[in-house]
Design a binder for these strands. Sequence first.
RNA 1: UGGGGCAUCGUCUAAUGGCAGGACAACGCUCUUUGGAAGCGUGAAUCGUGGUUCGAAUCCACGUGCCCCAGCCA
Length: 561
Amino acid sequence: MTARLVRPNFITEIIDRDLGGELSGVVRTRFPPEPNGYPHIGHAKSICLNFGLALDYRGECNLRFDDTNPETESQEYVEAFLRDLDWLGFAPSRVRFASDYFDQMYLCAAELIRQGAAYVDSVGEEEMRRLRGTVTVLGSPSPFRDRSVAENLALFADMAAGRFGDGEHVLRAKIDLGSPNFKLRDPVLYRIVHATHYRTGDRWCIYPMYDFAHPLEDLIEGVTHSLCTLEFENNRAVYDWLVERLRGRCGLPERRPRQYEFARLSMDYTVMSKRKLLRLVQEGEVQGWDDPRMPTLSGLRRRGVRPEAVRSFADRVGVDRANSRVELSLLDAVIRDDLNAEAPRVMAVLRPVKLVLSNLPASSEVPVQAPYWPRDVPRQGSRTLPLGRELWIEADDFSEDPPKGFRRLRLGGRVRLRYAYVIEAERAVKDASGRVLEIHARVLPETLGSDPADGVRPQGVIHWVPVREALPAEFRLYDRLFAVPDPDAADDPATALNPSSRAVAQGYIEPSVQGDAPDQRYQFERLGYFWPDPEDSRPDRRIYNRIVPLKDSYRPGPGRI
RNA sequence: UGGGGCAUCGUCUAAUGGCAGGACAACGCUCUUUGGAAGCGUGAAUCGUGGUUCGAAUCCACGUGCCCCAGCCA
């Protein structure tokens, strides 16, 4: 028995119990997105749950598009789900569409009418709202509630035939206008929408509502455990009502599915609703659904996150019925953990300043051996780096007025050049405004692989790139999209945006990466994990996205030595 | 105000009447040619009040707080 994909939770408990009882066959789940936006990491949680369960129990999981609203859905979104599901590493048992079932659903609606359990209502939208009542006042019947079966059948057929305009009539379930559960106060089952559906075209001008469509889809597909999020809890009563009335009829199987709800994923500094994500895209706040700052799977992918990390994240977040908000740091930690043993170490300088090694001849070029992996990652390989007289180093790695705890280069101080010599800074050349143009330092001989002979150890280690062989590169540094932990609470999420969520730096990368695969991920030493932007990077114009920064325990401050 | 749900370290969770544990985060130490990784350690929780019980995070009662529901969205 291999390890389970889904860690035990209240749903696996239910399945385990079912397996010993009424449910004798396979476990069937489904992932039922509406194709009205791109999948995000919240969908990933649901995907990992539904597909993971099917794998764990040797069952099946369909991908089923809940495409019952022609006004917001499109093939572009269908393709996004297909692509991202595949990227995540899951293969659906079948791919289905609610729109595949429109004919059968129509028949089921007619059956309901014949049962006297549904009627065509012709009050306007506003009037219906009024008649539905409030938390304190019961709903009251529409004047059309008691139409005859024959009249309802005829009207419903006319609705489908396109004899009415949008909103003139609806089909409603006849349940209980006095129910304290609003969902039971005669929910709308079908509405008239004269819109072209991306799959069925103009074949239909009536479309089933979620409450009607979903239980039928589950029934048709033989779903056993229909998992959805908490906000559908009240809808379960409608689900059950319809299942009991229709199972074993109009071609539907007898065996009933059951709905269970779990808490959707929320993360701090993030919005997760497709509506809000769409707005960010439409208003140009981000550069598309795959902007690396987006919580979409395409955004995470473009940033460089691997599917392994997303799955691991879903696992660590767990499944529960309590609303929760996951910290961004958990995602970061999981991404680093995934990349640590996957990304070879190389050096890049993001904000370069020139370092001149004054006691090296201009033509000098010392070959130094640099392993791709730190000693605690059990992988082999190294490259040779040419150390010349002039190097690029990080501007941040030199200070004339270092704060306490600064373990980098200062005038008169010593640091080791990663994989190379210990150097001692002699002077800084500055322009008229006082900006450091270059730093001159001398190499301490005999320090390749050993400490200085005088016993004065370097204060730190800094990375570098040889000026002569350096490859120029652009670095895109991404940070959280929002500046506040709960952007959903903001009146206008656009005002909560983090103004520095994207920064671009022009620097250099070591020459060894020349010829690497276009999807090669690296750890730039002391900086973070990066990879070439899959859209914009070119061999002659390198652009690297920062996937996630390295954890950094450096906190300059008064309390430090 | 009616109904439906949910409450365990800062965060996500485990414990299914029997020592409140883990991960992330924080802090400290060790190690370190990455201020990385790893290792060690510290601080940190059962929403409240009663009750049942030898024993309660768990069962019961009463509170409190938060989430969802009055779309012809899903």
